[in-house]
Design a protein around this nucleic acid. Structure first.
Length: 416
RNA sequence: GGAGGCUUCGCCUAGUCUGGUCUAUGGCGCCGCACUGCUAAUGCGGUUUGGGUCUAAAGCCCAUCCCGGGUUCGAAUCCCGGAGCCUCCGCCA
């Protein structure tokens, strides 16, 4: 949810942002209209309420003679108040709808354009050269680490079992990620995967991409696609006394992957369920760009520990989620695909989420909404896929990066 | 799943039976000032959160006693529905 005051004071800035995203500028004018209508409705209802209130107070002190007349008058006013309040509620709802229709304001410096218009900020390490590379599905099967066939038998397409060393790898990666996060001062958290509608709504996942989200109709609960949701909801309706707050959340993540038919159908790169360690920061708005760089740096640190060749990209405006003002992805090299594929993503959501979730902090200038930022530390399934693909050896074994070995009993190679 | 209790402006709390200056009491904490020749004690004042009005500040107005309805001229208070928390019973990893 964007700042209404900013819309009033500087609508052109919002229009420019809409243009950059390739979205309708007319939504800004619709919002301005809805705001004016609401303010008029509020002023009218407030005035009537004040009149009615003083009328009611007068009844108490009135003599028996004047009382019936005053009551009749107050009765009439009460009806008017009721009608005015109905208008007010309708205007409120219309304003809210107009306000939620507009995505976050794009940060200055964001590349314009769509999905293919990202800017490469950095390229780290040389991709390994592998003759006739096998993909992670094949390697995972040979190592008896990933069982997609039984995943499909039990749960359907885009499900898998991690078995043996695959299961061990999951815990190794989670432990490595958590250890790094704790060292950096994050509070480790195990977060719920099921959340209420208002939390899902507040994080912006029920907008344009609501088809991506699993909904449990019987209970009106949502399965989260990332623990970002629960970590943002964690401080909803609170005034935070000390900033920054940094959490490293572990949870299972669920994605319907509607509209991605045919993409990555093989293996565990794109699945309906996976586990993830997610970084989440609450900071002041002024600090948010610096914090964004810090989150990116921690993501890079993790990639470095896994000894992966990767590049950092600055995602273009048209490819940002509705909550994000800026987004950086890290893409690691998959030899079998001959391509960089997204492994992590970090977004600065500025005050977009905190407005809907009502999260503020005290400042000299009054209570201000905080900025929220999120960043992947390790999405387990995809990271395992990448490790197998990236670190495969000619003899069919997989090289284990040094940082991971302590969590895998010291093994340097995984062999069939 | 069954029975009962609870929910008040940071925390604790009075008020709810018996509707009306409740414009919500007091304590703790916090902030400011005063005093004291110690970062103690004391005194005084302030301290919910939103919205509207206003060039701005001040001021004024409206809302807010878990949430949503209802009764009434008038609801923290009465009625209905819901949520959350606690206790006990049942079931359960």
């Amino acid at each position: 949810m964007i700042d209404l005051r900013l819309v009033r004071d500087d609508p052109d800035r919002i229009r420019a942002s809409q243009r950059a995203r390739g979205e309708a500028e007319s939504l800004v004018d619709a919002l301005l209209d809805a705001d004016a209508v609401r303010r008029a409705a509020v002023a009218r209802a407030d005035g009537l309420r004040a009149e009615h209130k003083s009328g009611s107070n007068a009844i108490r002190h009135a003599s028996n003679d004047e009382r019936p007349q005053l009551i009749a008058k107050a009765k009439h006013l009460a009806d008017e108040v009721k009608a005015a309040e109905a208008d007010e509620a309708a205007a409120d709802e219309a304003l809210h709808a107009a306000q939620t229709a507009i995505p976050n304001i794009v940060e200055d410096g964001t590349p314009p354009g769509g999905e293919d218009d990202f800017v490469v900020l950095d390229v780290v390490r040389t991709p390994p050269t592998v003759d006739e590379p096998r993909d992670h599905t094949e390697i995972g099967a040979a190592l008896r680490a990933i069982d997609t066939e039984r995943g499909a038998k039990v749960s359907g397409a885009r499900f898998y079992f991690l078995t043996g060393v695959g299961a061990q790898l999951e815990f190794a990666l989670v432990n490595l990620a958590m250890a790094q996060a704790i060292d950096a001062g994050f509070v480790p958290i195990v977060a719920p995967s099921l959340v209420k509608p208002e939390i899902m709504q507040g994080t912006g996942f029920l907008g344009a991409h609501s088809a991506e989200v699993y909904h449990l109709e019987q209970d009106d609960m949502y399965l989260v696609g990332t623990s970002e949701v629960a970590l943002a909801g964690y401080h909803s309706n609170e005034i935070l006394e000390t900033l920054p707050l940094r959490y490293a959340g572990f949870s299972s993540c669920f994605r319907r992957e509607a509209g991605s038919y045919g993409k990555d159908t093989r293996g565990i790169i794109r699945v309906h369920w996976f586990d993830k360690v997610e970084m989440f920061s609450y900071v002041t708005l002024d600090e948010s760009q610096d914090e964004h760089q810090r989150l990116l740096a921690w993501e890079r640190e993790f990639m470095d520990k896994l000894e992966l060749a990767y590049r950092v990209i600055d995602v273009a405006a048209g490819d940002l989620g509705s909550s994000a003002a800026r987004k950086f992805d890290i893409e690691a090299w998959f030899p079998s695909q001959g391509a960089y594929r997204e492994l992590t993503s970090t977004s600065n959501c500025t005050t977009f989420q905190s407005r809907r979730l009502n999260i503020r902090t005290r400042t000299d200038a009054g209570n201000q909404h905080v900025a929220t930022l999120n960043g992947t530390l390790c999405a387990v399934a995809r990271t395992i896929a990448c490790l197998f693909d990236h670190h495969q050896q000619p003899d069919g074994s997989v090289y284990v990066p040094a940082a991971l070995r302590p969590y895998l009993g010291g093994r340097e190679l995984l062999s069939p």
